[in-house]
């Protein structure tokens, strides 16, 4: 991997207070939410303070990194570190989603059918209306309508898939030094992402108000909202990151051969895309 000696020294950044302050902000956010969840009103204020600190650090820290990048501190060697780092970060995110997919498969193929078997074994006396089939809110869950795949979810699939195309188109633009194509492609991607989020918000609203489908709707509601919710959260993050990249592109950042920041966000976006495809198939469709 690194056969020849490097021609320049590795960039080791100066000491920085950002990581420490970030941890402090996260501590406040978590402490505040514990208090809030347990009925202490002051908790929300602590959360707010923590969030403020986190946002401040994100601006400062990323700003510093962008400055260093523009200032030429990073060359191939450092660039490679960032690439490996981003790949393994995304790998950890994959495993986070895997936990929720695992929970979905478990309730669908093990716990719900097993409860149905118990029901059958006891001569239908335990929970008379319960069959142990999917979708299910469980033996004591209230009735709900499951989310159909071929309405909004299918449109959202189309939106995300085209956003994958537009971001690649932007990348081509960057590679061919066409700044216009770069910016247009990124802007289109952000807009598609926002459209996705708007539709999903509408879908959630519909589910809560008209379908009886809530977070509390048993195994189905829990897996549905946690999987699509965490995915939506990642789309939000991705859209924010893409917007930053768009703003940087318009200021003339990135060149055809040096644009790790751009690529990292693209990788992230494609990862979110792939998760959605899985979701579409196993949560909405099958």
């Amino acid at each position: 991997m690194n056969a020849a000696p490097h021609t320049h020294a590795y960039y080791v950044p100066q000491p920085s207070l950002y990581p420490f302050v970030l941890s402090g902000g996260m501590f406040l956010l978590l402490l505040g939410s514990i208090l809030a969840m347990n009925g202490f009103g002051a908790g929300s204020w602590v959360m707010l303070g923590g969030s403020g600190v986190i946002v401040y650090v994100l601006f400062g820290w990323f700003g510093k990194v962008i400055g260093e990048s523009q200032g030429g501190s990073y060359r191939e060697w450092e660039d490679k570190s960032f690439r490996y780092g981003m790949v393994w970060f995304i790998a950890s995110e994959v495993m986070f989603f895997a936990a929720f997919f695992g929970a979905l498969f478990y309730v669908r193929t093990i716990s719900v059918p097993e409860l149905g078997n118990m029901q059958a074994a006891h001569g239908a006396t335990l929970w008379p209306d319960f069959a142990g089939t999917w979708p299910s809110a469980g033996p004591k869950g209230a009735a709900f309508t499951p989310m159909a795949a071929w309405g909004i979810p299918a449109i959202n699939t189309a939106l995300l898939l085209s956003s994958g195309v537009t971001v690649t188109w932007a990348h081509w633009g960057l590679l061919q030094n066409s700044r216009r194509q770069l910016s247009l492609g990124l802007a289109a991607t952000v807009l598609l992402g926002i459209a996705f989020l708007v539709l999903q918000a509408y879908e959630y609203h519909h589910a809560y108000t008209e379908m009886g489908l809530t977070l509390g709707a048993g195994a189905y509601g829990a897996t549905f909202f946690m999987l699509t919710g965490f995915h939506g959260f990642h789309v939000t993050l991705g859209a924010i990151m893409l917007s930053v990249i768009l703003a940087r592109s318009m200021q003339g950042h990135f060149t055809a051969d040096r644009h790790f920041g751009f690529e990292a966000v693209t990788w992230y976006w494609h990862f979110v895309d792939v998760v959605w495809l899985l979701l579409f198939v196993v949560v909405y469709w099958l």
């Binding site: 929970a103 478990y106 309730v107 809110a137 977070l215 048993g218 195994a219 829990a222």
Partner: peptide, 24 residues
Amino acid sequence: GAVTMLLTDRHFGTHFFNAAGGGD
């Protein structure tokens, strides 16, 4: 992920680990 499910079971009404809702 596991402790997050625990948290939502505790405070947000999910049934990951509750048989009444089809969880386990």
